[in-house]
Simulated scan of single mutants.
Amino acid sequence: MKQDVRILLLGEPKVGKTSLIMSLVGEEFPDEVPPRAEEITIPADVTPEKVPTHIVDYSEKEQSDEVLKGEIVKANVVCVVYDVTNEDTIDKIKTKWIPLVNGDAEKGNKYVLAIKWCLVVW
């Protein structure tokens, strides 16, 4: 049985990654959103599967490409977040984020959601 699950949220800047995390933790949409949320750990006793869950936010402005690649390798689930009102963020799913995740997917074990990614509509 899996001892813990690590979920990585990535995508273009300002698409709502941090807002999604803060909404989950705070149970309401935040009025003020920092550039990046610190790693959140949901304890096992409050998850349906009784497994600790770590949620990791990625910020291109605050973290390097090397940090991102390391997070992809460590992640069990990668969620690509995009803005449905911004065509560029949708295009980047195919041209940037999926190729990046695919390049590092073989280095770590990913849980498959949809086709290895959970595309979150915000």
Rank of each mutant, 00 (worst) to 15 (best):
E62D: 10
V73G: 02
K110L: 09
V77M: 11
V112C: 09
N102H: 11
V77K: 07
I93L: 05
A105Y: 12
S64P: 11
D57M: 08
I72H: 02
L113F: 10
I90Q: 00
V73R: 06
W97D: 02
D88P: 02
E60H: 08
V80D: 03
N109G: 08
K94C: 00
D104F: 11
V78T: 09
N102D: 11
Y58S: 02
K107V: 05
K61E: 09
K110E: 01
D65N: 15
N86V: 07
V81Y: 10
Q63R: 14
D88R: 10
D57L: 09
I93V: 12
E60Y: 15
I90F: 01
T89D: 00
N86Q: 07
T95Y: 13
K92C: 06
N109F: 15
L113K: 09
V56W: 03
Y111L: 13
T95S: 13
A75S: 06
K107R: 05
N76K: 13
G103A: 13
L100S: 12
T95I: 14
K110S: 03
L100P: 02
D91V: 14
V81N: 08
V84Y: 03
T85G: 04
G108P: 01
N102M: 08
V80F: 06
V73D: 00
Q63C: 13
E106N: 05
I72P: 00
D91Q: 14
S64L: 14
V84F: 03
S59D: 07
V73L: 04
Y82T: 01
I98T: 10
I90C: 00
N76D: 13
C79N: 08
L100Y: 08
K61G: 06
L68P: 13
I90M: 00
G70E: 10
T89M: 02
C79A: 14
W97I: 09
T95V: 15
Y111T: 11
K61M: 11
V67C: 04
V80M: 07
Y58E: 01
Y111P: 01
A75P: 05
N76S: 13
V67Y: 11
K94V: 02
V81P: 03
D104K: 09
